[in-house]
Simulated scan of single mutants.
Amino acid sequence: MIRLIALDLDGTLLDPAGQITDETKAAIAQARQAGIKVVLSTGRSAQEAADFSTQAGCDNLSVCLGGAVLSDNSTGVHLRRWDIPENVSQTALELCLHRDIELMIFAGEQIVLDPFSHRSLSKTFPYPVFHNAAVVTEDPIAYLKEHDLPLTKIHGDWNQPAYPLAELSKLEGIELTSSNDHDFELVPKGVSKGRTLALLALLWGIPLDQCAAVGDSANDLAMLQAVGTPIAMGNACQAVKDAARYIAPDNAHEGVAQAIRWAMEQS
């Protein structure tokens, strides 16, 4: 019996154009009408999760920032958050900045961009909710200090040869993962979509063996391993497919809609 379905966003709920199809919205509505909770579990911010959750017709809680945040979509409040240890956060930022890497710096409930990342993301990441929430500053490290903000997550993209992955991997209290084959994500050690999804399910009194999860990338693997019914997208990496009980079509061919309906048949 499936009582909760968690959906990754990029490469999963969103089609290649970054949209949620009508067929997907219909499948989510069908699941919720059957009494099944449907939530987002994404590497994106709480602001974006709330927006996409509303568009899709999902339930009110979301797993955000790769599991570093459990948020309330109606208020934007972080119900639970795990931050990168203060003693390594500045070093992590120093390693990432000034390398012409497209950085998203998530600092508590704020999104902070350096000027290079702001210019680049304005062209490559066409999501107004993200940009409207972001603060642009010449010195993100000084901005975080001035406003007493924690470092919660760093997402890096665009200039792969410049990634300081070897240096970052030596820092204590952090973990490196990715959401596709050309980015990196830095989160607090122990944080994953699987752990925070387990907390969400606990809040609703739903055993994990009655949960399904749908994803496509490395940062979805812990989520799929945590639930009783793991589902991979057709465009998923091989490790995610290997962890799945069912492989849906890809995100260009209504994969999420079919995944949801397959999960409902298991109930």
Rank of each mutant, 00 (worst) to 15 (best):
residue 140 P to H: 09
residue 31 A to C: 12
residue 159 N to T: 10
residue 202 L to N: 15
residue 130 F to N: 08
residue 173 G to K: 01
residue 209 D to E: 13
residue 166 A to F: 10
residue 207 P to D: 14
residue 205 G to S: 14
residue 208 L to E: 06
residue 68 A to K: 12
residue 9 L to P: 06
residue 57 G to Q: 07
residue 40 L to Y: 06
residue 119 R to E: 00
residue 195 R to E: 12
residue 110 Q to M: 12
residue 243 A to M: 05
residue 68 A to F: 13
residue 244 A to R: 01
residue 76 G to S: 11
residue 12 T to G: 03
residue 41 S to R: 12
residue 120 S to F: 00
residue 257 A to P: 14
residue 235 N to R: 01
residue 48 E to T: 12
residue 17 A to S: 15
residue 78 H to M: 12
residue 231 I to F: 01
residue 16 P to M: 10
residue 2 I to G: 00
residue 38 V to L: 05
residue 40 L to H: 07
residue 212 A to W: 00
residue 116 F to Q: 01
residue 108 G to E: 11
residue 53 S to H: 10
residue 99 R to Q: 05
residue 243 A to E: 01
residue 252 A to C: 01
residue 164 P to Q: 06
residue 211 C to K: 00
residue 28 I to N: 11
residue 140 P to K: 11
residue 214 V to D: 06
residue 112 V to I: 15
residue 54 T to C: 08
residue 113 L to M: 10
residue 101 I to M: 03
residue 230 P to S: 02
residue 167 E to Y: 02
residue 163 Y to N: 08
residue 150 P to R: 13
residue 250 D to Y: 00
residue 46 A to T: 15
residue 219 N to P: 08
residue 37 K to R: 15
residue 5 I to D: 02
residue 39 V to M: 13
residue 22 D to T: 15
residue 191 V to R: 03
residue 100 D to C: 04
residue 106 F to S: 15
residue 74 S to R: 15
residue 194 G to Y: 06
residue 198 A to T: 10
residue 36 I to F: 05
residue 230 P to H: 00
residue 199 L to Y: 14
residue 68 A to D: 14
residue 222 A to G: 08
residue 253 H to D: 05
residue 25 K to S: 15
residue 208 L to W: 08
residue 6 A to I: 02
residue 121 L to M: 06
residue 218 A to G: 06
residue 233 M to Q: 02
residue 66 G to T: 13
residue 13 L to N: 11
residue 74 S to F: 14
residue 101 I to L: 04
residue 235 N to C: 04
residue 4 L to E: 07
residue 42 T to E: 08
residue 216 D to N: 06
residue 43 G to R: 03
residue 196 T to Y: 05
residue 31 A to E: 04
residue 69 V to N: 14
residue 97 L to N: 10
residue 193 K to C: 07
residue 34 A to C: 13
residue 12 T to R: 07
residue 252 A to D: 07
residue 62 S to K: 07
residue 258 Q to S: 02
residue 22 D to M: 13
residue 74 S to P: 09
residue 147 H to I: 11
residue 52 F to E: 01
residue 259 A to S: 03
residue 227 V to I: 03
residue 196 T to A: 08
residue 128 P to K: 07
residue 8 D to R: 05
residue 125 F to S: 03
residue 48 E to I: 08
residue 267 S to Y: 01
residue 164 P to R: 09
residue 20 I to P: 02
residue 6 A to V: 02
residue 140 P to I: 01
residue 168 L to C: 13
residue 207 P to A: 09
residue 72 D to Y: 12
residue 112 V to S: 09
residue 189 K to W: 11
residue 69 V to K: 11
residue 98 H to I: 05
residue 188 P to E: 10
residue 257 A to L: 07
residue 65 L to A: 14
residue 87 N to V: 06
residue 66 G to E: 10
residue 62 S to Q: 12
residue 150 P to L: 14
